[in-house]
Every structure is written in structure tokens, then in C-alpha cells.
């Protein structure tokens, strides 16, 4: 199979953008929680649920950022040549 570093780089860029989008999601969720906190119509279960979503978004963003960075490094190495480093 031919080596296509550009395809790997494209995935890296997409996941990097997604990581940023998820950080933005976490910010939106925080703002949403703050907006709802003061309103009596808000169902009581919502706070814990939204907080769990915020945490998950932060973790997911970090995961995607990590995956993006790893893919970027991988793409760079495949463009250069064989790599014998530790797995």
C-alpha cells in the first residue's frame, strides 16, 4: 500500500479542529448551566447531568488533541522514513 502522509495529516488537522470545537462545547455547557442555575423551572436533575457532560467534553477534547498530535508526528515520520523508536 502506498504511504500517504498527507492523508494522515488531514486526519490530524480535523481531529485538532474537533478538539477545539469540544473545548468550545464545554464552554457553552458551562454558560448554559450558569444560565439555568438561577431559574426555578430548571429540572433538579439537570445540574449534575450537565456537569458530567462538561467533564466528558474536556476529557474528549484532550483525547482528540492527543490523537491529533500523535497523528501529526506519525505523518511527519512517514514522510521522512523508517522509525525504530519504542512503541
Amino acid at each position: 500500500m502506498p504511504v500517504r502522509p498527507d492523508a494522515i495529516t488531514a486526519h490530524a488537522q480535523t481531529l485538532g479542529a474537533d478538539a477545539e470545537a469540544l473545548t468550545e462545547c464545554a464552554t457553552r455547557l458551562r454558560a448554559l448551566a450558569a444560565r439555568l442555575r438561577t431559574h426555578k423551572a430548571t429540572p433538579p436533575w439537570l445540574y449534575d447531568t450537565v456537569n458530567a457532560h462538561i467533564t466528558a467534553c474536556v476529557v474528549a477534547s484532550a483525547d482528540l488533541a492527543e490523537a491529533s498530535a500523535r497523528l501529526r508526528a506519525y505523518a511527519a515520520l512517514t514522510a521522512e522514513g523508517p522509525d525504530d523508536g519504542p512503541v
Binding site: 500517504r4 494522515i8 500523535r70 522509525d83
Partner: peptide, 19 residues
């Protein structure tokens, strides 16, 4: 992603594991 593993196996596996 998998096809380039022979070129950089360690970095490739790290990347795949992260994804």
C-alpha cells in the same frame, strides 16, 4: 493510517492507540 506503519511503526501504533 495503518498502511504507513512499516515506515514508522512505533509512532504509528502510538497514533492509532490515541485515536
Amino acid at each position: 493510517v495503518g498502511g504507513a506503519l512499516p515506515r514508522a511503526p512505533a509512532a504509528g501504533l502510538r497514533a492509532q492507540r490515541a485515536v
